[in-house]
Design a protein around this nucleic acid. Structure first.
Lengths: 301, 301
DNA sequence: CTCATATAATTGTCCTGGACAAATACTTGA
DNA sequence: TCAAGTATTTGTCCAGGACAATTATATGAG
């Protein structure tokens, strides 16, 4: 069996690093250094792809690419270690609840039962307000430390999604005001934020219409009008490139009728600059307050 | 308010047409013809973005870009019409059930109730084997005819997903063999195929571990080993670029231990050439048969 | 005339190497 | 110690060329 080489779009798929950026890194830093086929096209060996993923993970922790690429492999690997100490102090409750343990043990059934148990013992509202954000954070941080793999994060997300959807589905269908349209913009594929807000708002008697993730802007506008939404709510995960968020939200705001409110939330827009006509929420609690404000405004009219 | 212009990556986001392709179209066909800002960067007016989406839809029906771009707007619009006749004949049962009607009326609540009703009256197995594929096809075809918008398709997908997940969650958790690992490759974001197979296999007593969509190949392999999967099952939608599927599957096959079976299915790989060591399924019924074969093989050992 | 094969056109994706603007780090002076 | 200005770093865009894979068309055999 000949050695496996991946072409540049496969590497983009696998790592999330754009083709242009991969070529730029090669030009500037000399890494990655793919082989070339007869036609001069790049072919990346698997170990380089792995290293790209490691670099990307370290970058998300604040390291800069130029620094990382100039480091030999051993020092690079060492960078993931020191932070592991933080685990001992932080998120004890997450550890206590055993979610990370179950993840590491690859016990899908046990994890599902654990989440369900937490849901039932806390109730949906408290589960969503406290437990889920804490677990999300713990899993995200463990991933940043390199303690859990991408597939383990996928598994967590899938099980949490199943748990939340199960709970939402069991709620009596709400038909009251306001009517919220929930979705994410293209390139934002994280769904848990949407489900959390859907659960909370449905509990409060608001009508939620979710489009799932990655709706083109034009379609968000069309949907808002067709569904007679009072509010459009967008969720941005920490993984969303923060410099894209501002312009994107501004554009959506300008294309949406002024009568429709625009709410944005999630780690990807936390402590962002405020935008005119956009309500920015740092926590889920903010959303509940915003709902109360909306209803007060309605009443006053 | 000045006219809104989108930059090239926003257009890629909105339309799904790669940047390179957008530039190539402009070079070769003279469309799109974006404006330029001070720095010489492209800015696409909204109507051109709309036209790009229309062109992409027509391309998915088999039209070729060179042909389409040379056509004036009226003739382009006319191309979506003739096929509408087909609706009268095809998919009567879908129409009878009213799903498309509800979608066009934007009645999310009504649609959800309708799906639940169908599920309960048919039972999960028949719902998944017959009804869901039919509805998926009807919605997909209506989209190709331009009768429903992207956001309406999103809404359908979301409600169907909620329905299926609800049903799966209500099943007694299976822990028998085989153990199936379910996911899709990166760039394949359609989840309904996964949920359908998860429902069927769980009904048959197989253990399903789903990673959701878009798992990098390396992580599919890691997950398969960590979860001690007997079978890895991948779903490909019709939207998946068919020429990418073959190499991708081949690569995964070669990276996966030989003891783990690889099943692939969905419209994106239907009537594909067979690959060594890969079981290709054209229908969901095939999956049930493959399961029986697997169990026979086990028994014989 | 029908089908298979060879040739031509079409089309997407990759390439190089240059440019620039935004984000980040560093320096300087109050 | 902090704020403002300067330098560096970094990602994304651009042009225009090349090529391989797909699809259409022409040609010839049965």
């Amino acid at each position: 069996m000949s050695r496996l080489l991946m072409n540049i779009s496969a590497v983009e798929r696998e790592t999330g690093v754009l083709k242009d950026t991969l070529r730029m890194w090669e030009r500037r830093y000399g890494f990655p250094q793919p082989e070339r086929d007869d036609g001069g096209e790049r072919g990346y060996p698997l170990d380089q792809v792995e290293k790209i993923r490691l670099i990307k993970r370290l970058m998300s922790k604040g390291w800069r690419p130029g620094k990382l690429m100039s480091l030999p492999d051993e020092e690079l690997a060492a960078l993931t270690q020191p932070l592991a100490v933080a685990e001992a102090e932080g998120d004890q409750s997450a550890l206590q609840s055993g979610v990370l343990d179950q993840l590491r043990k690859h016990d899908a059934g046990g994890l599902r039962d654990l989440l369900r148990h937490d849901l039932h013992s806390l109730g949906l509202q408290q589960f969503v307000l406290d437990k889920v954000p804490m677990l999300n954070r713990a899993v995200g941080e463990a991933w940043e430390r390199g303690e859990i793999q991408v597939f383990e994060e996928h598994l967590y997300t899938e099980l949490m999604q199943a748990t939340l959807r199960q709970a939402i589905g069991a709620l009596p269908p709400a038909s009251g005001r306001p009517r919220l349209l929930l979705t994410t913009v293209p390139e934002e594929q994280h769904v848990l934020g949407l489900l959390m807000i859907e659960a909370l708002m449905t509990l409060e008697g608001a009508t939620c219409i979710s489009l799932g993730t990655q709706t083109p802007l034009a379609d968000i506008c069309r949907a808002a009008e067709a569904q007679q939404a009072d509010i459009v709510a967008l969720s941005f995960s920490a993984a969303f490139p923060s410099r894209q968020a501002g312009p994107l939200i501004g554009q959506l705001r300008s294309r949406l009728p002024g009568t429709i409110e625009l709410w944005v939330g999630g780690a990807g827009v936390a402590r962002h600059n405020p935008l005119a006509g956009v309500r920015l929420m740092n926590t889920l609690q903010d959303a509940r307050e915003a709902l109360a404000v909306w209803r007060d405004g309605r009443l006053a009219q």
